[in-house]
Each structure stands twice: as structure tokens, then as C-alpha cells.
Amino acid sequence: MIQMGNEALRSYQVGSIHAELRSLTVSDDREGVLEGTPHLHRRFRLMGIDKQMAATPHLYVHDLDKLRADAKARVEEWLPRERVHARLTSWWTPEDIAGFGQTVLSVMWFQAATQDPFAYLATIVRPLDWTALARFEPFDD
């Protein structure tokens, strides 16, 4: 896992909002898989993604519609091996929020080991609408 301190934050443009990368985790998506097919693997991953999205309402999964379509179409090609999860924050807050805090967005995607996750994150988030996807998190007292 890659964790960075405040002095080394990376900035990203998410639509019209400036956001900072707080954490980036790269994991082996097939860890623990002993046997199976690409189709079965996609179905299990989609079930896991659905659970994660229910528990984390500010989670954006890149190409989720494509993953769902591939699972229905029984695509027999393996997903890229690496699963990447990034957490971004911004000082932007919705107008109707009076408290102190920040907005948070988590992004997840699959990629090949040869891809740079920082550069790929920039291409994923640039067209997103932060104001529609991010969630406000108040600061604890």
C-alpha cells in the first residue's frame, strides 16, 4: 500500500474541483483464487463491488457498466490483475453544509501491473463531477 504524508500530497483536477490524493492502494485482484474462470471471477468481484458500494456511498468504480456487461456476456478474458483503490479529498463543501469538514471521494479500478496508477487516476477523475459523487465528512471535535 502506498500512503503519503501531507507534505507529499498529489493534486488532481476532478471536473472543476481541485482534490488531493490521501491514499492509494494497489492489490492483487486474484489473491486467494485457486481455480475458476474469468467469468466466475468477474461475477464474484461484482458481488464484492456491490457490497463495497453499499457500505461506501462515495465510491466510484471506473468502468462498472462495462464490468457488468462483460459478466453478463460471459467474457472469457481475465480482468487486469491489479485492483487499485484511491481516496481523494477536497476543501470544497456543498453550499447547504454549515459545519467544518471536507468532501471525500473513493475511486476503484482494475489495471495491468505495467500501468502507472497515478497517471491512470488522473485520466479517470478528470471528467468526473466531484459535486455529484463526493460525500461531506465533518471534522471530529
Rank of each mutant, 00 (worst) to 15 (best):
Q13Y: 02
D29M: 12
F100S: 09
M1Y: 04
I124T: 04
V26I: 15
T25A: 06
Y120S: 11
F118M: 12
E76T: 13
R22S: 12
W109T: 03
R126D: 10
T37S: 15
R87C: 09
G101W: 03
S23C: 06
V125L: 08
A19H: 08
Q52Y: 01
V125N: 14
A113R: 06
F44R: 14
V33N: 06
V104W: 05
D50M: 04
Q3S: 12
V104C: 10
A55G: 01
L40F: 09
T56P: 01
E82W: 03
V107A: 02
K72V: 15
R42G: 01
P38V: 01
K66P: 00
D140H: 11
F139P: 02
F136W: 13
S90G: 03
D63Q: 15
K51L: 13
R81T: 15
E35Y: 11
F118C: 11
R43M: 07
T89M: 09
F139G: 01
L34V: 04
V26A: 15
R22M: 10
F100I: 08
R87Q: 14
Y60W: 06
Q3M: 05
R42E: 02
S11D: 10
G32F: 02
H39A: 12
G99I: 06
G32K: 04
E77D: 13
V33C: 05
S106F: 02
P117H: 14
L34S: 03
E31G: 04
K72Y: 05
A113H: 07
A69N: 11
A122L: 04
R22V: 10
L9M: 09
Y12R: 13
